[in-house]
């Protein structure tokens, strides 16, 4: 019982979460349940990563994008017929990779220390325990600021939206970069103008993804990594600039690619709408929809419904 872990598989199994990987019979359920291969990285394949571990292919496993891209959303876990906690196994491999000196290749968030007040909201917001507060000398003074562990950050941007001072940014989806996209050309009379924020992970079907490209210019589609990236101020900004409505699309409850982004955004939009109601300006022009894995074609219906609603709203005004 006291033998030392010898093989790579033994080492992975010895880390809590890394158990049962030998049970995998390579059925591919996890691969197709996950959207990473389709959307981000053709080489992504948890099943093959498990094989690499079983075959003692240590370096290959550490270099595999699968090790680093899994966001532990656990869509695959309840689907696995062998009940292998795949994200746990991948997490164990990642831990060993980090111990071996490998670093995450992901685009992660950065903190502007001159703006950070050390409030710690990002620490609470992050689903991955990536940020933590540190005492640090900044501009000659000791200060408490947030520091992000780049190996833990999955780049979802939930903290970016949460930061009250705008001190956190992620390349490609910083506040400025998103705000810049919130603009819709003036339309003919009666044609509603709509901004749609679409989470990268809530659309599975190829048809639905290509649909987004086909909208005329009164519908502006803005891609975001997670609906949790949305700051309610962006909706306010859009309305203020004369845009008629804002639609935010995220994953169904329990299916968020970043664990709790969809929950965070549903809270935020609900709160925003409550605020509108209290100020008696609630008119349903900011909506949040949660699209499930089986909701093929739903995005079209939601956008159509929103446009119809906005057209009627305009008419009434």
């Amino acid at each position: 019982m006291n033998h030392q872990p010898e093989t790579f598989a033994d080492q992975v199994r010895a880390i809590p979460g890394g158990e049962h990987l030998e049970m995998c019979y390579s059925c591919g359920t996890c691969v197709s349940k996950c959207l990473i291969q389709q959307k981000v990285e053709p080489e992504y394949n948890p099943r093959r990563l498990l094989r690499m571990v079983m075959m003692d292919m240590r370096e290959e496993a550490f270099q595999s994008p699968t090790t680093w891209l899994c966001s532990a959303c656990d869509l695959c876990y309840p689907a696995c017929p062998q009940q292998i906690h795949i994200s746990g196994v991948i997490g164990a491999i990642k831990q060993l990779a980090i111990e071996a000196g490998y670093e995450s290749p992901l685009e992660t968030v950065t903190v502007d220390e001159s703006l950070c007040s050390g409030c710690g909201i990002c620490v609470l917001a992050c689903p991955y325990e990536a940020p933590h507060l540190v005492e640090k000398e900044i501009a000659g003074e000791m200060d408490r600021v947030s520091e992000v562990d780049a190996n833990k950050c999955m780049g979802c941007g939930i903290c970016v939206a949460a930061c009250p001072l705008g001190a956190i940014a992620r390349k490609g989806v910083s506040n400025e970069e998103i705000v810049r996209q919130i603009k819709v050309k003036r339309q003919k009379k009666g044609v509603p103008r709509l901004v749609t924020f679409v989470c990268d992970w809530c659309l599975r079907a190829d048809d639905d993804v290509s649909l987004l490209e086909s909208y005329p210019d009164n519908v502006r589609v803005i891609h975001i990594p997670c609906s949790g990236r949305i700051d309610p101020q962006m909706a306010l900004l859009a309305l203020r600039s004369g845009i008629d409505g804002v639609l935010v699309c995220g994953c169904a409850p329990g299916e968020c690619h970043y664990k709790r982004g969809t929950y965070v955004s549903s809270c935020k939009i609900t709160l925003l709408n409550r605020m509108f109601e209290q100020m008696s300006i609630g008119d349903g022009r900011v909506r949040f929809v949660q699209i499930g894995t089986q909701d093929r074609g739903r995005i079209r219906r939601e956008v159509d419904a929103m446009l119809e609603y906005l057209a009627a709203w305009k008419e009434a005004r």
């Binding site: 390579s26 691969v31 197709s32 349940k33 599975r204 894995t293 089986q294």
Partner: peptide, 25 residues
């Protein structure tokens, strides 16, 4: 490849089978 999901086109009621082709990866 064991399909992880079936989705349906709500209009045609055609079905889309999502799986990995294990041979192809």
């Amino acid at each position: 490849g064991r399909p992880s999901l079936i989705t349906e086109d709500p209009e045609t009621h055609n079905l889309f089978v999502h799986s990995e082709d294990v041979a192809l990866g």
